[in-house]
Design a protein around this nucleic acid. Structure first.
Lengths: 261, 261
DNA sequence: CGGCAAATTGAAGTATTTCAACGTCGGTGG
DNA sequence: CCACCGACGTTGAAATACTTCAATTTGCCG
């Protein structure tokens, strides 16, 4: 199940462009990136990174969805986050990774040699800034997850997950749902993974899905395909203060007044 | 309850040194930081930052413990993390903050004007690197929190909290506990806050404390002062794979073999 | 068509929430 | 000095939600 990857020839440039704002980078940086970038394609269920195993590379997700997960002492696995198109992973400036990374779907990754990327970071303030913003954004999302996962009731956690999924998916269901009223949403991971992600069991996940359906918030078409009937309702169910949601629904957070520290 | 702060004269340099590895920075950067740094002291329970209110400053915690929290629609509050000595907060390169920051204990903060700090980041790659490492570290800790909070049983979450508290406290209880067997641990926040942090209620927190006591893992001396009897046991109870713990207990994560991506 | 994995459903057991009451501590004011 | 009060923590008991185990259904693939 490990390292089953296909090397893809060429096409590194276009993949990189989907992943990084290449137009914000100077020519030299962009071409250096393209030269060091290597694309690899992984089947669903492949282990891309083993926790504790030193990596010489960093990677960007060009396509697909991956799981970051920790295996606990008792064998239970817990997912600490999902990686979507455009996300970076691998440990910058640091030791071995702290969790496994596995593909949830068929995925293409831009692989970059760590040392060369780090060197390029020092040379190119623009790239450095892009990476730093990405880190800040990751932190925000991790904190959103905290809100979602800390929810007492499972249905609320699931609602939060669905909202964040809407917010991140290329299709961007948030906007269309508010007007049209029905957006289809692919659930990219199986119930087991969802259970690991939300800190519960498959059975509870199943019941939560059907509870949200009964509440009229979603419609279950297939186990892995639901339609969102009421994204606002889902957001409320989830506690109602997810940053990702506000960003996804195009809200411009207006500075109310100038605060002091 | 807001903005009740005392301006402290002088002493910015020594406070900064507790917060940043000043010796790793070039002279020019260090002195620029010292010049733009302003120390302010806050009483416990003060609101330092309001969510959504644009800030012109960033801050480092020089002393004390602060809460980052979101207020949900239904009025419930949820704590998304604690800030300890050395932590940075405030939104770099970005809009208004996404959560409130309140002092849990009497706290001293190093306040830095955001624009000048960001400018300095561009000039000083060393400072940039320090900040980036700090962000990476924050991300790791946020993911640790995810593991802790996603735990099904409350006692396990509390155990995780205590382990992470040990790992972060200046006293560093982890090492002494393993040999001596009894380290006192100040609980820096009230039960209500602990409940908000762990996504549960005060009553459950209380019962969880006494359950851990009954299990012989801790001793409750006062509501806000416990002794850790068995830090390893706590770590196991929490699921047993907290990065913070491994770092705190001085474990050097050895690269097993060189992995490929 | 059978076999397998994933998802669902049911029912009993366990943990947490909720509501209510009580205890402790520290401060206030008579 | 002491009674009172409020904030905080603890405890108990009933209601609720989740977990666990077992059984069944569904969909997919050989």
């Amino acid at each position: 199940m490990t390292q089953r990857a296909t090397e893809v020839s060429g096409a590194g440039a276009s993949a990189l462009r989907r992943v990084l704002p290449m137009d914000q980078l100077p020519e030299a940086t962009a071409s250096a990136l393209q030269q060091m970038c290597r694309i690899r394609s992984f089947a669903a269920g492949a282990t891309v990174v083993h926790a504790g195993e030193m990596q010489n590379s960093l990677a960007f997700v060009a396509r697909g969805i991956l799981r970051m997960q920790k295996t606990l002492q008792d064998g239970r696995q817990h997912i600490v986050g999902l990686l979507f198109e455009g996300d970076m992973f691998g440990r910058l400036f640091d030791g071995p990774p702290l969790f496994d990374v596995e593909t949830a779907t068929h995925s293409d990754l831009c692989i970059l040699p760590r040392a060369r990327f780090e060197a390029l970071l020092l040379e190119s303030p623009e790239l450095d800034q892009v990476v730093m913003r990405s880190l800040l954004h990751d932190l925000d999302r991790a904190r959103d997850w905290l809100l979602v996962v800390a929810n007492g009731k499972i249905a609320a956690r699931l609602a939060g997950f669905l909202v964040m999924l809407c917010a991140r998916l290329p299709s961007g269901c948030a906007s269309s749902a508010s007007e049209a009223g029905l957006t289809e949403l692919d659930i990219p991971i199986a119930r087991v993974d969802l259970a690991n992600l939300l800190g519960t069991r498959v059975e509870s996940i199943s019941r939560a899905f059907h509870a949200l359906d009964a509440a009229g918030l979603i419609e279950i078409h297939r186990p892995d395909l639901v339609a969102v009937r009421d994204i606002e309702g889902l957001h409320e169910e989830a506690g109602g203060d997810l940053t990702s949601f506000r960003i996804a629904s195009g809200e411009r957070l207006p500075p109310t007044r100038t605060g002091r520290v």
